[in-house]
């Protein structure tokens, strides 16, 4: 048996992404992470859970935690609307293959981002926390943020996330 190792997932070559709207911003998530996109289903609130992941959803018989990147990026949390979607992602958590859901205010399209459209994030001068952004892409004249999903979840698991905690964390369940 001879098998090539997988190309490093963090390299920034041409990548396929799915673009989505979160608050006023457009984000792009690597398509390779995406398992499926769901219409908002019944979301179970987890009392006492941090605001970043205060919900659970049933994805084909599996209980999947629902996370809200708006918390990471300091955006106001609004109730889910008719265009809201849940993106189900494959993401290793603490070294184990896991599935997580993230909320989006709307999902746009799957598109290819060429490497020349990508730029790294300036350490200062952006309103987004740079450690959670993998790159910024220019797609059709607009700036699209590629959040560093593994870094965001790793930081949360490591307890370094600037998420608030407590009973008020009910937005996603609304």
């Amino acid at each position: 048996m001879t098998l090539m190792s997988r190309p490093a997932s963090r390299s920034l070559g041409n990548i396929d992404v799915v673009t989505l709207r979160l608050g006023q911003d457009t984000l792009a998530i690597r398509a390779e992470m995406l398992r499926e996109v769901l219409e908002p289903v019944s979301i179970t609130r987890v009392p006492g859970a941090p605001e970043f992941c205060c919900g659970l959803v049933n994805v084909r018989g599996t209980v999947v935690p629902l996370s809200d990147l708006r918390v990471t990026f300091g955006m106001p949390r609004t109730p889910l609307g008719p265009d809201s979607r849940i993106l189900v992602l494959d993401l290793p958590l603490s070294g184990r293959a896991s599935v997580v859901g993230i909320v989006a205010d709307a999902v746009h399209e799957v598109t290819r981002v060429e490497s020349h459209m990508l730029q790294t994030v300036p350490a200062v001068g952006t309103r987004w926390p740079p450690q959670f952004i993998e790159a910024i892409a220019r797609i059709g004249g607009n700036f699209v943020m590629l959040p560093d999903i593994p870094a965001i979840f790793a930081a949360f698991l490591g307890g370094q996330s600037a998420t608030t905690v407590g009973p008020q964390g009910q937005g996603a369940a609304a």
């Binding site: 179970t44 987890v46 859970a49 959803v57 049933n58 209980v63 958590l93």
Partner: peptide, 27 residues
Amino acid sequence: IKQLSPLHAGVSTFSGATILGDGAVAL
């Protein structure tokens, strides 16, 4: 019983979750 994800490791009030007959998740 379905295990909770490591994201909810800090929530000690619940030991897991289950899926109810109507498809909703209950802790």
